[in-house]
Nucleic acid binder design. Sequence first.
DNA 1: ACATCGAGCTTGTACCAACAAGTCGACCAG
DNA 2: CTGGTCGACTTGTTGGTACAAGCTCGATGT
Lengths: 259, 259
Amino acid sequence: MMGGMSEQPKYQQLAAALRREIDNGVYPPGARLPSESELSARFGASRNTVRNGLKLLVSEGLVTSSQGLGYDVRSHEVFELNASRFENLTFPQNGDSYTTDVTNAGRRPHQTLRVEMRPAPPDIAERLKVEAGSKTVLRFCHRYVDDVPWSTQATYYPGWLMERAPRLTEPGDIAEGTTRYLTGAGVEQVGYFDEIATRMPTPEEARLLEIGAGVPVLLWTRTGHSRDEPVRCTVTTLRGDLNRMNYEIGDLAALGGAE
Amino acid sequence: MMGGMSEQPKYQQLAAALRREIDNGVYPPGARLPSESELSARFGASRNTVRNGLKLLVSEGLVTSSQGLGYDVRSHEVFELNASRFENLTFPQNGDSYTTDVTNAGRRPHQTLRVEMRPAPPDIAERLKVEAGSKTVLRFCHRYVDDVPWSTQATYYPGWLMERAPRLTEPGDIAEGTTRYLTGAGVEQVGYFDEIATRMPTPEEARLLEIGAGVPVLLWTRTGHSRDEPVRCTVTTLRGDLNRMNYEIGDLAALGGAE
DNA sequence: ACATCGAGCTTGTACCAACAAGTCGACCAG
DNA sequence: CTGGTCGACTTGTTGGTACAAGCTCGATGT
């Protein structure tokens, strides 16, 4: 091409130029970028090349795209606000109190629940110390906050638990919360093992959480143990752009102004 | 098109098919996928469509691509192995024993350390309870395991700590580890506050960690507290495809066979 | 024996074209 | 005024082509 020494591919140059303009406030948060065809004209590149560049920006979380509308510069405000909310929402000592916590925070919770019998997937079976493919109860929860998809949560209970806690198989909610119900049924959880990983969402996850391409998810796998054995395993898929996990280790609460 | 009821786009169907085959061991970890042109013939799709599908798998971390070679199924061994390693590496009571732990595991550690005086960035200042822009010591560490970039770690120490622990400002390593050095200097950490988030890497991070497009990073921010106040804040950027964070909550260690 | 080159494979970049699908607003009929 | 249609715009998907760039390996020549 004409430029001469162009070390970088054109789509990366395009992305860099737009990134700079976004940083400099030419396109402030919430603003709409020029359309693909406009950018195509401006940079002298084909629409495909423009799309490649824009895909980079989307994957960095700088912009989002919506079919029929265009590309919007993301605002970071939302990110921080919801992050701290999440904290209150899930961690204060074995809450299971998603609904009440969200309500108390002045926001509107909404969830759909699906209960199935499922053979244990290998990774779950390992954590529950049961045989892969053995009978488990899967309670699958899709949660919203103010109509924004928040997380999907799949909790597996080993089959042997059903004798002691039969209501887990019933389709509806358990009013007092599953943790409390389990405790009442003589199955108390005395410890948790948490694993946190990240990856890009599968198309299915992207659909459920309504996240654009390029936003990673946070995978939170919590295995709850009674005094004798693991009693449940929860795999939560969280929007990476809206959530942050917090852990306190040691005697932080007892300290003076520490946090 | 002719197929009739194809709810999903073709490239997603293709990705789903390959994902299933990878899960089922048709393409075991380390194996090479058929080339784009072969897949194109097999699925009756154009090379563009095939590439779109493969890009999904890459972004999910299932496969990697290298120009001139092809697409390789990623081995989960590395992932899992390093995950548990990571655990030992950082968590068992204030290790700071990265070097020794990695060596004991039969792997070769390598790190570069940079020590600077830096005004505190706003987010760090907030966590350290000092004024933004006030003097801090930044110890920046770039770590490798077996020559694979592993993480970057930026630890900030508040300026007031320098009177009691002057060696923190010296450029070289601290042989006994910074945690032990701090304890010896009368600054014992009795609690930590951990925050874990995820996002796509900046170009700079992608360069340092040598991660391809589509792989997110795990951000681990640990604030260490003495009995009176925060004494340091460590921001670790980990390759999301090689790392997993594990936390034990409650009395897991005391249990019988519970993990 | 050994370095060098090149054919033939791979993925990466770039271009073009066409249609599907989603959104919005202008317009028109009731 | 209300409600629906339709057209003009947007991004999403799929098809094609060509060449660049990176890797492997065998043939070639010294």
